[in-house]
């Protein structure tokens, strides 16, 4: 009997091993290396770092212009998340209530864009938004505007790109939570005399909250890091955390500072995941995607 238990455990260990190796190699080691880099000093000869440990990289973050970048990033992430929520929730809700045939078509429409590289799709937006692009030409032909609107290289264009890229991550979890919901509860509340609005607020909304929460995390967290969006759609003022890390790594060749910025970004992300768990969110709701 005893040996049996023992055997089972060994087997379990063997099964877990690939996962453990994967985690150690690609999560612990790489993140550890970034953490280590963030305390080093850049090398004199312009390549890499020297092992002289320092806190300077973190102190540099207190520079007002970098704090502004951080603020910008949070603002962009918040706006993106709110718009995704306002558009994605009704979409997911209606999708869940649609007939199976329609539902399949809608689902396909949400997923198909994923088959094309995000970068290519962003270039598509560039062309649409250009001064002589289809949108401006269309508006001019209708006589609604005299001269081309400045659509590209604006904060609005970045928000548009972000919402466009991240909307499915809001639609899918809200859809699945609405779809799983027990509609008998809504019917019960209606039978008890609740108005449709009251039934929605007191029954549907709380029951679908986990999906909404998961959707918010899934849009907020990546929107802090999608730097190519502001590179391609943003104007001169649109510098976000992701761009800053990219510039420090590739243009300043300042690995330690880039690493420190990355650590800050990871801490921010962890903070939001922690808040999500505190608010009662389950990791599975996110992992399910």
């Amino acid at each position: 009997m005893k040996t049996n238990v023992r055997k089972k455990k060994d087997g379990a260990l063997l099964l877990v091993a690939p996962m453990a190796i994967w985690t150690i190699l690609f999560v612990v080691v790489t993140l550890g290396y970034i953490l280590y880099l963030s305390f080093t000093t850049r090398a004199e000869n312009g390549m890499g770092v020297t092992a002289q440990l320092t806190l300077d990289n973190y102190l540099k973050l207190l520079n007002p212009s970098y704090l502004k970048v951080l603020g910008n990033s949070l603002k962009l992430a918040a706006i993106t998340t709110i718009i995704c929520l306002l558009v994605g929730y009704p979409f997911g809700y209606l999708m869940a209530k649609a007939s199976p045939r329609r539902r399949a078509i809608l689902m396909l429409l949400v997923i198909v864009p994923f088959w094309t590289n995000a970068l290519v799709r962003v270039y598509g937006w560039r062309i649409l938004l250009m001064g002589d692009g289809p949108i401006n030409v269309f508006l001019q032909t209708l006589g609604l505007i005299d001269k081309p609107l400045k659509l590209l290289n604006t904060f609005g264009a970045v928000v548009l790109g972000m919402v466009y890229a991240l909307l499915p991550f809001m639609i899918l979890p809200t859809y699945s939570s609405v779809e799983k919901m027990d509609w008998a509860l809504v019917e019960a509340s209606r039978d008890m005399g609740a108005s449709p609005l009251r039934a929605f607020v007191t029954v549907t909304l709380p029951l679908t909250a986990p999906g909404v929460l998961a959707g918010c995390v899934l849009t907020f967290v990546p929107s802090i890091g999608l730097f190519f969006m502001s590179d391609l759609l943003g104007g001169a003022n649109d510098v976000f955390l992701g761009n800053l890390i990219n510039d420090q790594l590739l243009k300043s060749r300042d690995w330690p500072f880039a690493a420190a910025l990355s650590v800050v970004m990871m801490l921010l992300t962890s903070l939001f995941l922690w808040l999500y768990r505190r608010a009662g969110g389950k990791a599975e709701d996110i992992a399910a995607l």
Binding site: R42, E44, N45, G46, N63, S65, Y66, K68, V69, N72, A236, N237, V239, L244, D247, Q248, K251, S252, R253, D254, F257
Partner: peptide, 19 residues
């Protein structure tokens, strides 16, 4: 030319200019 530490100073000026 490669300016070592001063690469970061240039980059900082540039970030401030953007913002």
């Amino acid at each position: 030319e490669d300016l070592g530490d001063y690469e970061s100073v240039y980059q900082e000026i540039w970030s401030e200019f953007k913002l």
